[in-house]
Design a protein around this nucleic acid. Sequence first.
DNA 1: TCTGGCTGTTGCGTTTTTTGCAACACCTTG
DNA 2: CAAGGTGTTGCAAAAAACGCAACAGCCAGA
Lengths: 303, 303
Amino acid sequence: MRHLLVPRYVEKIARNGSLRSAAEELGITPSALNRRILSLEEELGVEIFERHPSGLRPNIAGELLLKHFRDQIADMERVKSSIADISGQRAGHINIATTREVVQYFLPALIKQSLIDFPAVTFGVDLLERGEAEHSLVDNTNDIAIVFEPLRMKELQPVYSGEQQMFVVMSCKHPLAKKDNVKIYDCLDYGLLLPKRPEGIRRMLDISAEKTGTTLTPVLESNSLDLLRLMSQDSDALSFCLAINLRPNLEQDNLVAIPLLTPGIASGVLVAGHLRGRTLPVAAARFLETINKELATKFSAMG
Amino acid sequence: MRHLLVPRYVEKIARNGSLRSAAEELGITPSALNRRILSLEEELGVEIFERHPSGLRPNIAGELLLKHFRDQIADMERVKSSIADISGQRAGHINIATTREVVQYFLPALIKQSLIDFPAVTFGVDLLERGEAEHSLVDNTNDIAIVFEPLRMKELQPVYSGEQQMFVVMSCKHPLAKKDNVKIYDCLDYGLLLPKRPEGIRRMLDISAEKTGTTLTPVLESNSLDLLRLMSQDSDALSFCLAINLRPNLEQDNLVAIPLLTPGIASGVLVAGHLRGRTLPVAAARFLETINKELATKFSAMG
DNA sequence: TCTGGCTGTTGCGTTTTTTGCAACACCTTG
DNA sequence: CAAGGTGTTGCAAAAAACGCAACAGCCAGA
């Protein structure tokens, strides 16, 4: 959209913190970009960027304008999506923010299906730490967030919200493998393969351990959940994962998943939603509804 | 704001219904304007105007886009006003929609004061029929509406809302002039000078008369309230007006105003507000607050 | 039936705007 | 003091927008 050039320029500069790098990404020269900003500032009668030797930084007026420009860009996307929708073909781009616990197996399947049903709808998926995911909604970087144990609910308008059962993943020859369920203190005798700190599932485990008066000392910490699971193979070490992230055919890897009981503390909740007060583009709204339905049918029985 | 040229062009065409008249008001040639629209439509991949022999008319996609553009323009005004506000000087333009019953004496005084306090804040005042005033908020033609007996409250977010006493205005030598108050059937023996139909005050009088089983047959109907009041001078005819529209020094015109009692029916309410869900520019928001304070202190005692 | 007036549209030459290039001045870091 | 980062500016070339004039269509009134 040609008339949104200036807003996009401003937003890119603010994001990159420098005129030159922004110009490069925008495919124009720094001088052209600079002049655009100067003329915009002249129009407004106010400077919107602080000039530092290290680059440009929006001042108070700039932040105000930036917010407006971001909304404007997002709104235009929404309108374009609506127009495409009434023209018969659903189209648009959907940016999804999520955490590692969620993406595997669940999201890919839904996206694949959408690509078949609506080829004109494209996707972007951002793997973020907990909290960052929600924050990325504020500046419209992402449209939808799927987060386990969200931090600040103030910004997040939930569409789906439900508890997620935790599982302990272990070798099928493991001493605990035959049990119907496992409690946290059953695990303390074995090597623990834990996700790194900011992760929501790690927090649930920490709280759970604290409740029983112990502390979890992992033999391996990683933010690669794949790595953790694979470490469980042919060893006594235990890894953990959420129901939504359980691999379909665990037995092929000689692994089993046993439900982890956490008496006394509430299970962690998985939330899918969008920025509070924002109206999503049609494509994004429908996809979020698909996510909701899928989560509801898959996990409603577990409570 | 240069980057809002296209939105303003589209909005002007939609408002005027014709490319040529819009081009004239915008100070450019029809060909230039036409090309802007064509290139916009090409960008969108969809036509946004229906071409009739009589002119251009937005189609469904166009209406969608139009709404977005209008919001965008209004939002930019709000941001500019905010930026001006943090820069120390309050600035902006305030468009006010109101009805004839309200403007006189009340609004001019407030606007005069504002022009003194904030010279950079400019005003536009639209005299509209009841209903049109509220409707003009929807497309952001006006920021603030002050209406007696509003029709559709769904769109109007009230900031002030209070009842308005009605008065009967007559010559000071009139037989009724000495009474403390007047009822509607006291008036039926005299010539009635009534506002024209859509006016809110007329509706109140009609309802009031209907309640007593009579009908009001005016000797003169007009939408000029000034004219009606002047007709009361040196005659037995009666005119009516609201508390807010009472002339300060009526006795100089040899007129008096006697309160009109309307037992059994609620007094009409005067409402000042803005479009529901919209955040006003600072200048407009503060002025609306001034209106609210003024109305509250002036008419709170009357109940 | 024709004419006048309204509509949007298009080709072309001109004007205005925007751009890229290169050089510059500034600050920080090694 | 040199190297690498920043934003800024002069100038000429490229691109976009514009105005003018002519055109085609529709419709109401003579």
